[in-house]
Write a protein that binds this DNA or RNA. Structure first.
Length: 109
DNA sequence: GAGGTGACTGCGA
DNA sequence: CTCGCAGCCACCT
């Protein structure tokens, strides 16, 4: 029985996020069974840039819907541009209609 | 082996 | 309302 690392599971969830939707670190962490381990999700995202294919880390934001990790995408507007390309409206580095854009992994189950 | 860090979150003052 | 602290687990030095 192969036990996947915490961040390996994060990648699986992020890849399941449908286009035009987004989720939060806490939602993923909670889905994995460690609600308070949202930091691990962020750590996984940091490593995501070394992964191939690159996972949609831009679809993962903090629980406020704010692009907390936009600075890690190289430029300060890359993450926002990617989200806007998927039809997500962003204002002041924050996702508009976050309640509708929010995608809960548990909902898929 | 031990200590410090981190793309977060929740609660208390 | 705003600010600060503790918890969580994996990775890096």
């Amino acid at each position: 029985m192969k036990k996947l690392s915490f961040y390996e599971k994060v990648y699986a969830v992020v890849q399941l996020i449908p286009q035009g939707r987004a989720t939060s670190y806490g939602a993923i962490a909670s889905f994995l069974g460690a609600k308070k381990s949202a930091r691990m999700v962020g750590w996984a995202m940091n490593n995501s840039h070394f992964l191939y294919p690159p996972i949609a880390a831009h679809r993962v934001v903090n629980r406020n819907g704010m692009l907390s990790g936009k600075a890690h995408f190289g430029d300060g507007n890359t993450m926002q541009k990617l989200l806007e390309a998927e039809g997500i409206e962003i204002k002041h580095d924050q996702i508009q209609q976050w309640a509708e854009i929010f995608w809960d992994p548990e909902k898929v189950l």
